[in-house]
Design a protein around this nucleic acid. Structure first.
Ligand SMILES: [Zn+2]
Ligand SMILES: [Zn+2]
Ligand SMILES: [Zn+2]
Ligand SMILES: [Zn+2]
Lengths: 135, 135
DNA sequence: CCACGATTTGACAACGGTTCTCATCCTGAA
DNA sequence: TTCAGGATGAGAACCGTTGTCAAATCGTGG
């Protein structure tokens, strides 16, 4: 359960990928990040992007969720603490939210059925105010 | 927001697929279902399994969730009402759960940030009592 | 400053799940 | 029964992701 911060070596590529993630409020796929880096002149292999992204996700440096069609999208979190997201279906805008209520509910309902080592994923999506207005 | 029950034609294949889903408490992938049907002598094309499965999911007849590696797995729900699942990471056992607390929380936290047309997915996973004991 | 073992990278092949294509088969309605 | 259009199946196509392995890179000890 304890996140073991695997010792990893700092490289230009890793920094570039991390850079591409900061500042963007939306979730981005590995391929989008790869393209963004390429367009910016940063030469980074696609496999490297995938490798680093999942390494970062494993270390909890970034959040990763699955789109409806199964694609993995990443986002650098503002906080290290456990949290969830409300994502706009139209523009991708994502805000981070927390809620003890859900956390406790998840834990309780699982325990109630004899489950242990419980984890959970909660994703909320809708239309942000801007996109709703632009209708 | 209202699920429009698309008029679909009844076929032998559709029935077979629906059959393969009832009785099993675990989530199964399209390919597993296809294999199960084949082994049972039911000849159904893989594409057809995919098509029907997503059609049923669209109509809310079955639940669909994504495994960690992005594979879509389906399960016929015992109830038509909105609910969630607690799934065993080891054996796949799934129990259906509901909770007004989460529903309200999701709605509230989304509205709080200006989001509308809100939806959500909540998946809880852990080790069921049996699997935990079998350690 | 340099040599060396361990990591990391990158180009490309391979993979696996899902979707597309389209000729053929069925179904419900007339 | 006939007919128009939805449904099916076999296989190719798609596409995100992972594997391969030689070459480049990094930290370290000398
Ligand atoms: Zn938006
Ligand atoms: Zn949580
Ligand atoms: Zn179990
Ligand atoms: Zn719910």
């Amino acid at each position: 359960m304890t996140e073991q911060r695997t010792e990893r070596r700092p490289t230009r590529q890793r920094a570039a990928i991390a850079d591409a993630l900061v500042g963007t409020a939306e979730f981005r796929s590995a391929q989008e990040i790869h393209a963004a880096l390429a367009g910016r002149g940063e030469r980074v292999g696609l496999a490297t992007v995938y490798r680093n992204l999942q390494a970062m996700a494993g270390d909890g440096e970034v959040d990763v969720i699955r789109t409806a069609d199964g694609e993995a999208v990443y986002r650098s979190c503002a906080t290290d603490d456990h949290h969830h997201h409300v994502v706009c279906r139209s523009c991708g805008l994502a805000v981070e939210v927390t809620g003890d209520a859900v956390e406790r509910w998840a834990e309780a309902v699982a325990a109630e059925h004899g489950f242990t080592a419980v984890r959970h994923t909660v994703e909320i999506d809708g239309l942000c105010a801007d996109c709703a207005a632009r209708r």
